[in-house]
Design a protein around this nucleic acid. Sequence first.
DNA 1: TATTGTTATACTCTATAACTATA
DNA 2: TATAGTTATAGAGTATAACAATA
Lengths: 167, 167
Amino acid sequence: MPDAAPLEPGQLAAYFALMEVGGLLQHAVEQQLRDEGGLSYIQFQILAVLSEGADGPQRMTDVADRLVHSRSGLTYQIAQLAEAGWVAKTSSPDDERSVMVSLTPEGRTLLDRVMAGHVQVVQRFLLDPLSSEDVASLGDVLGRVRAHMRSVPPRSAAPRRKPRSHL
Amino acid sequence: MPDAAPLEPGQLAAYFALMEVGGLLQHAVEQQLRDEGGLSYIQFQILAVLSEGADGPQRMTDVADRLVHSRSGLTYQIAQLAEAGWVAKTSSPDDERSVMVSLTPEGRTLLDRVMAGHVQVVQRFLLDPLSSEDVASLGDVLGRVRAHMRSVPPRSAAPRRKPRSHL
DNA sequence: TATTGTTATACTCTATAACTATA
DNA sequence: TATAGTTATAGAGTATAACAATA
């Protein structure tokens, strides 16, 4: 185990700013999603992931992997979303074990409707005070961090595969 | 209500990267805190806030304001931390209604011990792939965003004061 | 045997509202 | 009246482990 070199003040400041901004932004966005769509943030993320392929349904496990979720947790969330009529479950023709999930038309309508306000919140809280250079720089630096995080094995070098994502 | 100008791809990318990095980092850090200190992230944040003053105890409400928490939620968390012996509650000499909270020596010891591993995780997941210029840029941009967020009134321009923070 | 997904279960956390007491 | 904090309560979400079905 390597020795812990204490962080420099600037490093600590960047870390704290990142966590605080992320937390505040998530808070703001969660409220908007709750108010305008009755959605939790994770539910929104699930709908967003399902809307991505533009084509069709995705496997449960793949969705869970994208979103850090335990599979039982995803089962729970999908059940909520299916009960509300926003997603549909179908069985896979290829693999009888798999369950495919897809957005229903209602789900897509909801996502579209909610996304408008969502974008407004992001604009207002995150983007308004930034120049386009700032945004480019932020995207560049955080993009590299994201790529790095995805490649770093968990500390308990477990032989389990678990790629992650948070939207 | 202003019309929602759709975000440019770069803006969207920065937003997604921010949320994903924040989420992944919080996940990594939570696991470390749980493993090495039996602490949730919020509990860690509370201890960190209490350790800040360097001097002494702080009022319940002030801590809650710093951390987005409802007051009942903070009462719950403080009860947990007090039962574990990491914080102590005392009554304020100035205001009989107030309850002051402070770190116990055990709490400070725990925080110091946990902080070492914490810093390692931050180093490994966030800082390793970044140059010092990157870190400076990140801290600068996010610092401005944080300042902006703290000043933006909630959308439901409620006359409630609720300054926020996430560590 | 390994993988997919569900279920049962138990736990943590959160917020709302009603309440007490001080200011 | 307004503020500080607690309590009761109820709900959302999570993860673990045991399980069934399929590969």
